[in-house]
Amino acid sequence: MPDRFASRSSSTRARASGSLVVADAGSEAVLELETLPASRNGHAPEDSAGTGQAGMGALFWICTAWVAVMVLLAITASILPIKSPTFQDYSAVNVGPGLHHLLGTDDLGRDLLSRIIFGSRVSLVIGFASIGLGMVTGGTLGLLAGYKGGPADTLLNAGSFVVLAFPPLLAIMVIEAFWGRSLWKLTLMFAIVAAPQLFRVIRATTLATASREYVVAARAFGSRTGRIMLRELLPNVIPAAISFALIGVAVAIIVEGSLAFLGLSISLPTASLGNIINEGVQNSNLQANPYIALWPSLYIFLMLSALNLMADRLRGRFEVREVKL
């Protein structure tokens, strides 16, 4: 019974009325994936407006476009016609939003728009790279383990619970205190924390998919395992995987922001959204110029909303149901 050891708190998670709760420890913002089966009591899911519609809905595409814009801005930051994020213009300190500085400047006369765009690089790199890395490792293993089972599955499952036993923010904080922090070290640590989570959700989705009729039929036809995994399972696991990954990116961005806010993410003077907000509350900046904290807060809110909405729509559209974690 491979799930026996693994039942640490998973049983309760799954039992929570079929809703999977992804707790990000970092900032207690618990993102919740409501995966109620559509047909529960013959009642259509009330949340996902996307269900039943043919397309993904306009909101989904607006969010996707917005995320794309943010990513593009972050990539092209150094060639955009914006000021340097570290240039201190002492003739324009604490200037409000205006033509010269679109979002104003901070207490050292640095352009806020530029700081936010450059700062979002850290959030986005850590968010997408760590989850991408976690998905490639954890997700692939989840697909393999979920379909093949056996002792390797049991072992991986048990291992994932050991890593999940650590509160992520605490683990990253403490490890980087000893190990040091740089962008790649942070990304790696985030990936290590995320991989077991992704492993579990992908494994669970695979288990559920593997019992569907078309997979059974393919096996009855004598298809090879590799073919079943690539042609039958993978295409049906991918929508769920993307949905989980988007939530994962949002959680990683929150955790990175929390670390940066605590002064424990990437070292200064590199801007990141969290440490700009932190600077905004230092030295009575909040009285003098609340914009320093407000703009990055707004940016991070829009970033997370878009990611959460995209995940929500995908879930509604593809009826990501199973949650036998």
Binding site: R15, S17, S27, E28, S258
Partner: peptide, 25 residues
């Protein structure tokens, strides 16, 4: 209320680290 209780129980752990940010601020 079962999911509610389960959810509350699960989030106690994450609240504990969520409190870090609040304590520092």
């Amino acid at each position: 209320s079962f999911s509610l209780l389960a959810g509350a129980g699960i989030s106690i752990g994450s609240l504990f680290t969520g409190a870090f940010v609040v304590e520092v601020l």
